[in-house]
Nucleic acid binder design. Structure first.
Length: 204
DNA sequence: TTCAGGATGTACT
DNA sequence: GTACATCCTGAAC
């Protein structure tokens, strides 16, 4: 198995967000492993992006993580109830990140189903299957990700990213894999940045 | 199938 | 006090 390292995130945030599609997210929750394929991402570029928590170099206790080394996890609470998972990009001290907005389970989906709905995959309704982990809050629920995982470096063993997982029969995605591009979700307050085409997704 | 409204708590003004 | 990188429920169609 080949893991993504900090070099993957040490480059243009938009490019890295596109490249993160189709990679594998590995969650180790108390020894139970769940693997997902990333299907939707958004780029947030601190220096020029009013939708980014660290726009214009803003530093607060919450945004401090965004200034950490590339690949560091940035997890925050939104709307009082849901967590959102990001990975820091660019050189340390430059606050940009990629929000992971959606994924599909490809190994141990039952463990994710129990965390998300309290039942096994075979017990899920059609509606639940359609809305499994297709949103940032849903994804974090299914993988038991909360703010205790904020600020972890890559390779921490609790939350990791891989190019492939041959032991589970999961291949590396093609380099030229096509993807969709659109406007980001839920940032109506961000003035001109609402129109930045920095949301990317694939059809699973 | 779509839609309005509420849940819920932390960060920041 | 206000806003928030969201999600679920229930009602109407």
């Amino acid at each position: 198995m080949a893991r993504l390292d900090s070099k993957f995130f040490l480059r243009d945030t938009v490019t890295a967000a596109q490249d993160l599609l189709g990679r594998y997210l590995i969650r180790n929750d108390g020894g139970e492993h769940i693997v997902c394929r990333i299907t939707e991402t958004e780029a947030y570029v601190g220096a020029i992006d009013k939708a980014c928590h660290a726009y214009g170099g803003r530093r607060t206790p919450r945004t401090e993580t965004l200034y950490a080394a590339p690949g560091t996890s940035y997890v925050y609470l939104i709307y009082g109830m849901y967590s959102c998972l990001n990975f820091v990009t660019g050189p340390e001290g430059e606050a940009s990140a990629i929000l992971v907005r959606g994924c599909v389970p490809v190994y141990n989906a039952d463990a994710a189903a129990r965390r998300r709905f309290g039942v096994a995959v075979s017990e899920m309704t059609a509606y639940q299957r359609k809305n499994f982990m297709n949103g940032p809050g849903k994804l974090c629920k299914g993988l038991s990700i909360d703010r205790t995982l904020n600020g972890l470096p890559l390779g921490n063993g609790l939350l990791d990213l891989a190019w492939d997982l041959p032991e589970y029969g999961l291949p590396r995605r093609p380099d030229d894999m096509p993807f969709h591009t659109g406007k980001r979700v839920g940032i109506d307050y961000a003035e001109e940045a609402v129109d930045f085409p920095w949301r990317f997704w694939i059809d699973e």
